[in-house]
Design a protein around this nucleic acid. Structure first.
Lengths: 200, 200
DNA sequence: GCGTTATGCAAGTAAGTACTTGCACTTAGC
DNA sequence: GCTAAGTGCAAGTACTTACTTGCATAACGC
């Protein structure tokens, strides 16, 4: 055992990158307190001392990691893709939302589990979903004003977000049961959202 | 400081009870690994040694705690209260579900955060919700057969559970936003579930 | 070539934490 | 009253873990 590692000269920023990636995957699997700096370093193929030389402390590393993987990318593309067809718009919104939530699912769970659910992780992990929620609420308000939907826009937005959220979480807890393709799920959800389950 | 504690003679089982309660509240606040046996003992007003004399190990204590607070009470009452009126039935189911989920919310979150979401905590915490899910699925199937609902009964059940789940979790993360009374929420959810959001 | 920089490596420190132990004390049941 | 059970208390053990340090080494820019 104990394969000696390269002594130096990686691409600039590569070590940092490897550490962030390792941290991410370990956080997802074992949570903040369950993950040790030694493990992170090992998985990154880097010495533990190097970890501290780069980030100073475990907390700083975790923060940097969460910050890095929760960068909010532009949402303009989402807004731009909406074309006025209610059903198609909702599907696009749901798809985008699902994608974002899936991509930070572990961090969302982590944030929920940490002291009260707030804190730096919580803020970062919910940033994208919260931004989308705002978009959804405004969209709902517009469509209510246009007479296409009825109800409280905020409630509708929450409900809509909730559909996606519960699906994403369900897939984590019961992976085998939630094997359906996301596309089908979105379709089903949007349809139920618009038309309800009652037989016409 | 250092107030001396009672030396002995509590009601039979009282010490155990206090330890279980303290464990529960600390687990909810800081998670399994974040909670120390010393804290638990302090909060229970009991010496740390006593904790180990009662439960042997921290893991055993946590297991006992989760087991204790996730006892599945009878669901017959729920089934018995269904009277055939679709909307009223769904409201009753949603209410029962919401109540159960709220009561084990912290443990559910804990279970999601622990290695993959499975394990003893996960099993216990999801026991009641899973039982209710089965009931819901069967109920949906019956109503579909009766021509009152349409769709896949399993999907409908999941969706229905998801509504409640996302609400319960949302209240944890955004308590101020989710201040509405549960009764109203149930009403809104069931209505949306049955009739959709599209304006007639 | 030479210094600078990034790293590996091994050892170590300090603190926290699960769990133990021996002893004294107090109450309850006999 | 005596015994046994349950507890408090203080000290201690063994282990983990975040974090440090000193030194050797390998590449890169000049």
């Amino acid at each position: 055992m104990a394969i000696p590692q390269l002594q130096t000269a990686r691409m600039p920023g590569e070590t940092r990158q490897r550490l962030l990636a390792a941290t991410r995957s370990l956080l997802a699997a074992k949570g903040r307190r369950g993950t040790t700096t030694r493990e992170i370093a090992d998985q990154a193929g880097v010495n533990e001392a190097t970890l501290f030389r780069h980030f100073g402390s475990k907390d700083a590393l975790v923060d940097a990691c969460v910050e890095y993987y929760c960068r909010t990318v532009e949402l303009e593309e989402l807004l731009a893709s909406l074309d006025g067809d209610l059903e198609r718009d909702l599907r696009r919104i749901a798809s985008a939302l699902m994608q974002r939530m899936e991509s930070v699912r572990d961090l969302i769970v982590m944030s929920l589990a940490e002291e009260g659910g707030n804190g730096s992780v919580g803020e970062a992990a919910w940033r994208a979903p919260t931004a989308i929620k705002k978009i959804v609420a405004e969209y709902m308000a517009k469509r209510i004003a246009a007479g296409e939907l009825s109800g409280n826009p905020l409630f509708l937005a929450r409900f809509f977000m909730g559909m996606v959220f519960s699906y994403v979480m369900g897939r984590k807890r019961f992976p085998e049961e939630y094997a359906a393709e996301p596309g089908q799920v979105v379709e089903f959800q949007v349809d139920l959202f618009l038309n309800g389950a009652r037989k016409a």
